[in-house]
Amino acid sequence: MSLKSDPLDGADERPNFKTAAVLAYEAQASRRRLVLRVLQVLFGVAMIGFWQVASGTLVDPFFISSPADVIETLRRWVIDGTLATHLWITLYATFSGFGIGALVGFTLGFLFGRWDAIATIFDPYVTALYCLPKIALAPLFIMWFGIGIESKIAMSAVIVFFLVFLNTFGGVRDVSQIYINAVRIMGANEWQLLRVVILPSAAAWVLTGLKVSVPYALIGAVVGEFMSSNRGIGFLIAQASGIYDTAAVFAGLVVLAIAGASISAVLKRVETHVLRWRG
């Protein structure tokens, strides 16, 4: 971009340099995107087609069911309300756990990041807890909170906590002293410093932590449901496998996969928007 280029329109807008070359470049990029999208869909269709054909010819449907049966099960679940009830329970546990874990993780990560002494004192304990396989905590949570939704919330909160905590901590540590000094000289108080420099600077890390932890929140809730529960998608899967209903097992997995992918897609959008300055 040269300073001498003429602004094509209002001097107040981002300069608009949409020349023929730009348009051609964009057209090519969008053609490329379209082709990739088509290939993406084709792959999915081919896999499902292969599954359908293989079922009953190459592999016993007892083990792999078939897309038609899975869809039939899903249809039944939608109609009789099974899906809504159980999915709601699982998502409720996921988001409550995510919310609690993220809030606590962010707050503590921030405190640890700002105060060196706290970080030094607690570092070995945090590391030790972090290294524990969180799943091993599930029996404990069931003892503490019962087999209801609370133990699932606790499970996913713990997993989310560590991811968000560590990322927030890293992000706050990473804030450049140059920016802090510059804003202090402009007269910023501690609160303004936090709002104007530390939070936006740490946002990339925090968002990464949040993004990565969403699938884990779902995992936490479902693992809790596997262990003991009477509701939720995890419970549906466990129950179906107990009676060798492969179609229902796959149906449960499909629901989880779609839920996880949808949540991740939303977060990706948010991230792209918040971090647009990184160009």
Partner: peptide, 12 residues
């Protein structure tokens, strides 16, 4: 203070 190093906030 206009520092020798860049101190514009990159996210603004």
């Amino acid at each position: 203070y206009m520092t020798q190093m860049d101190s514009l906030l990159p996210w603004r």
